[in-house]
Design a protein around this nucleic acid. Structure first.
Length: 909
RNA sequence: GCCCGGAUGGCGGAAUAGGUAGACGCGUCAGACUCAAAAUCUGGUAUCAGCAAUGAUGUGCAGGUUCGAUUCCUGUUCCGGGCACCA
């Protein structure tokens, strides 16, 4: 403890020297209003910033209109999508694609704000959430299992809610470009650029038979347009309702119900082909062919235009779809298509493609786009997979969003109102419409706040002046809000005038080395890059990438336990008298492998609980049986707290106490009466109930041992399950190190004698190895080198200060406490952190001979000690004279003699 | 399903530019010290055959390139991370 305090003191002194203070005792926490004030402040800057899509500069719409008019133009240069209405209510002229400057001035405030929302970096819109009616709450994706809530098993559907978003898509190109200038691993860069998902292609307008509307599709393969055999719309596509014919309506509606209960991931992972025909036909703009329009869940509404042109000979999913629905396939690539599977080649020569026939696909793509643009039937389009980041949460623990609403208009709070503090709540229950718990606090919602009505906020004062009746936003910010910029706050934690002074951020610059896991690849690490770019654009910092170098540490994983809920109906435990049924892993395993049917599981239940079917629930039991015959995949895996599982056996009583909603649950056990849990190694997480605390180990072995053991476990970048088996080894190492200085009987044993060459060789070998290993983040081999060094010094009975002192300096970053202590025991008064790092001197470690491994035909047969300076001829002579070599060569003619100096010898015969 | 990783003794892992596979640690076996235990120390420990010398096999699996492959290439299986509200 003494040493740590000195370390901190020393660190403080260094900071004082350069003019910054740092309060080590107080963390920068997102839950601290002194910090989240500035998160709210940055949010306001993002809200007030407008993005000019053409010039990549944040400016105001009026400024742009004025500049535009100066050039004699009438129409406003920015399109209005009307696709995602940011606020409720009727918007004037909102459906048009553009508006004139005069029109802009004639719009009412609601319409203006609604349009401005489309340009704000932080904007409000409507987005889908997982809505659980029974719980009256919004659920996170990981709280939903197989379409029902993990807790209780209630049905979950999608619901549109008002949501805040960050316009990260405007930074897509710069986020890609920035990857070239940062030191991240290639796989990390790959993940980020795949997530951004930039693709080049075309938007093509297909006509629809008997309809005015155009069907817009996005494709990266305009060259295959003559191979389009059908169209597929996402089930949520806005045209589905309009174009479905009377004859197909019922089928389509049934399909939509099916899709509504499934999330995006389930839809993408679905192997079985599904979809329905709408009865409508599209018209190919190039050859006017009539093409059937289907809907299917494999097309996602959020990507491209939510509609695709399907070319079965070139795309595997389209091909399977065509086979399934018996749609005839047009082959446009001749013998490159074998009729058995699609061929997504770019290199084939086109067949059956009208004026493109004979052209290479790569060239044809260019021709088609140019022609379509000429005819006004399509245009070149760059598309991104990434979409804007949802920025509101229906939760309590998050920064309140400093916005007040009235008549559908969002008014930003005055900066002097910050921090807008989280009120105390009696309960964390969600609001009446699934909003956050803040919606329940009337006095907080309607408290008096001043609004930012300045020019920069671009809102006109409301009718009642600055004083409005409306309510504060009740959603809060997500976890990534605070984590997107905390490193900047660390640079200037006590500043109450700014989030971080320009002086501080200029001085510290980028984070030199960021150690973070790959699980943050497309979340935190992308969001914080975007925030940094936004703050850079707004002129608050001078760099636009937060992290100079990123090292991905692996995860220390936990061992999770699972129980298996046998869900015979969409189980709603509050409305059925039947108890939830859990089956043992042994049964689940058989069921999964198809060795056991649902019906046989019920038999097992009857066997174990003979009185289960009472007259009262007999009708329900009847229903269960009919359900079971359907063989539906209705077993859900649920995490259970590792602490109530003994090895793999569940403590059922403890479980019922832990999860009162399952207090009536029935457990189908193995024949020996035990309920066995499933086991999986996965990320430690609160929601997986598999976390372990290091506190006990620190208590027993000390922080140095714990720290070194974690480093010793394996390479930093590798994930591994948490396991304390080997910690004794590190503990013994530290004790062994201590004994080089102090003996239990004799007390102090270290001395000031002159070191021998042998001892210096041990030391300098270690200096070299540890320096190299630390440099490349190979901490586990570094620790191993320390162990080797201490073992060798113990063997040499070396207790000399001349050797031990440099060793302590090197070890200080690995085991800071014990090293600080030993450093002072050696008579030093300052901190070990101030000591100069020992320099490697080659002269102590030079070798003159080498024990060469000698192989015959690539197989190692012996080793021979040879002078390191020996020439190839000399080595050849020595080796061929060797008895073992002679025996293996056995007079066979020598084909080749391979000698790699300092490495090995191979004799080929 | 898609994207990104990983797989080496009983266990965690080492082998940094294609050149002695198993460093270091855990565990385990044998021994020393001790009345005993703890702690500590010494030695063995990939597998198979053999008293041994030694030989054969061996880096998830199936192939390929090479004098030589844990390392490079092709295919494949399993495990982990992410997939937009866990953070």
């Amino acid at each position: 403890a003494v040493s740590t305090k000195q370390n901190i003191e020393n660190f403080r002194r260094q900071l004082d020297k350069i003019g910054f203070s740092f309060d080590w005792d107080r963390e920068v926490k997102t839950s601290d209003p002194k910090y989240y004030k500035w998160t709210q402040w940055i949010f306001l800057q993002l809200f007030k910033s407008f993005y000019n899509r053409n010039t990549n500069k944040a400016e105001y719409i009026d400024v742009l209109i004025n500049a535009f008019e100066k050039e004699g133009n009438k129409n406003h240069p920015f399109p209005v999508s009307g696709y995602r209405l940011p606020v409720t209510g009727n918007r004037q002229q909102a459906t048009g694609n553009s508006f004139t400057a005069d029109e802009w001035r004639s719009f009412d405030e609601f319409t203006r704000q609604s349009i401005l929302m489309e340009y704000r970096l932080a904007y409000c819109g409507y987005g889908e959430v997982n809505w659980c009616e029974a719980l009256g709450t919004v659920l996170a994706n990981d709280e939903v299992v197989n379409g029902v809530s993990e807790r209780g098993g209630y049905p979950v559907v999608k619901k549109k809610l008002r949501q805040w978003y960050l316009r990260i898509t405007e930074y897509a190109d710069r986020l890609l470009e920035g990857l070239k200038h940062v030191d991240f691993s290639e796989s990390m860069k790959e993940m980020q650029s795949n997530w951004i998902g930039k693709s080049y292609g075309a938007e093509i307008d297909f006509g629809i038979l008997d309809h005015e509307e155009k069907l817009k599709v996005y494709t990266t393969r305009p060259d295959t347009i003559f191979g389009v055999d059908f169209m597929v719309l996402a089930p949520e596509h806005e045209l589905v309702e309009k174009i479905t014919t009377q004859k197909h309506r019922k089928e389509v509606e049934e399909y939509l119900d099916h899709v509504k209960s499934r999330n995006e991931r389930e839809r993408m992972a679905e192997k079985n082909i599904s979809g329905v025909f709408t009865g409508a036909y599209a018209i190919n703009p190039l050859n006017f062919r009539e093409i059937p329009i289907y809907i299917s869940e494999y097309v996602l509404a959020g990507y491209g235009t939510g509609a695709i042109m399907a070319v079965p000979c070139g795309d595997e999913r389209d091909f399977k779809f065509a086979k399934y629905f018996n749609i005839p396939i047009t082959n446009i690539i001749g013998d490159k298509f074998n009729g058995e599977e699609a061929n997504p080649t770019w290199e084939a020569e086109l067949h059956e493609s009208d004026f493109l026939t004979g052209m290479l696909m790569l060239d044809a793509a260019e021709v088609v786009i140019t022609d379509l643009e000429g005819w006004g039937k399509g245009k070149r389009k760059v598309n991104y997979k990434m979409h804007d980041a949802a920025f509101s949460r229906q939760r309590y623990w998050g920064e309140p969003i400093p916005i007040k609403w009235e008549n559908g208009i969002a008014y930003p709070l005055n900066e002097t109102e910050l921090p807008l503090e989280l009120p105390h709540v009696e309960s964390y229950k969600p609001g009446p419409e699934g909003e956050g718990p803040l919606a329940n606090i009337e006095e907080w919602k309607y408290k008096k706040v001043t609004l930012d009505l300045s020019e920069t906020s671009k809102v006109s004062p409301p009718a009642g002046g600055g004083d409005i009746e409306g309510a504060l936003e009740t959603n809060t910010m997500p976890g990534y809000a605070g984590s997107s910029w905390y490193f900047l706050r660390y640079m200037d934690p006590h500043n109450d005038k700014e989030f971080c002074s320009r002086k501080a951020s200029d001085y510290w610059g980028q984070v030199d080395l960021y150690i973070g896991g790959t699980e943050h690849a497309v979340g935190h690490l992308l969001y914080s890059r975007m925030w940094t770019k936004a703050l850079y654009d707004l002129g608050y910092i001078s760099h636009d990438e937060p992290y100079k170098k990123l090292v991905n540490q692996g995860m220390i994983q936990g061992s999770s336990r699972y129980i298996f809920l046998f869900r015979l109906e969409p189980l709603n435990i509050s409305t059925t008298s039947l108890s939830p049924i859990f089956i043992s892993y042994t049964l689940y395993d058989k069921w999964k492998r198809g060795e056991m049917t649902n019906y046989q599981i019920l038999d097992k239940l009857n066997e174990q609980i003979p009185n289960y079917y009472t007259p009262e629930n007999a009708h329900k039991a009847q229903m269960l049986v009919s359900q079971t015959q359907m063989e539906t995949e209705d077993i859900i895996q649920l995490h259970v707290d590792v602490n109530i599982v003994n090895g793999v056996e569940l403590n059922i009583e403890a479980f019922k106490k832990w999860r009162p909603e399952y207090k009536n649950a029935i457990f189908i056990t193995d024949d020996n009466g035990k309920y066995i849990c499933g086991v999986e190694t996965e990320k430690m997480s609160k929601s997986k109930f598999n976390t372990v605390s290091p506190d006990d180990l620190v208590e027993k072995y000390g922080a140095d041992t714990f720290r070194m053991y974690e480093m010793f476990l394996g390479p930093v970048e590798q994930s591994k399950p948490w396991d304390t088996k080997g910690i004794e080894g590190v503990y013994r190492f530290l004790r062994k190190l201590w004994r080089l200085f102090f003996d239990e009987q004799k007390g102090m044993v270290w001395n000031e004698e002159k070191a021998t060459d042998g001892e210096l060789k041990v030391l300098h070998k270690a200096i070299k190895k540890i320096e190299e290993d630390t440099e490349r983040f190979s901490f586990n081999t570094s620790v191993s080198a320390f162990m080797v060094c201490v073992n060798e010094l113990t063997d040499l009975k070396c207790n000399k200060k001349e050797i031990l002192e440099p060793l302590v300096i090197m070890l200080a970053p690995y085991a800071p406490h014990i090293c600080e202590e030993l450093w002072h025991e050696l008579g030093n008064t300052k901190s070990v952190l101030d000591a100069a790092y020992p320099a490697y001197e080659q002269r102590y470690t030079v070798e003159s001979v080498k024990e060469y491994p000698v192989s015959i035909n690539g197989k190692l047969r012996t080793t021979i000690i040879i002078d390191l300076n020996a020439s190839q001829d000399e080595v050849e002579q020595i080796v061929l004279k060797n008895d073992v070599v002679k025996k293996w060569v056995d007079d066979k003619p020598l084909k080749k003699f391979i000698f790699v100096k300092g490495k090995m010898v191979n004799v080929v015969v």
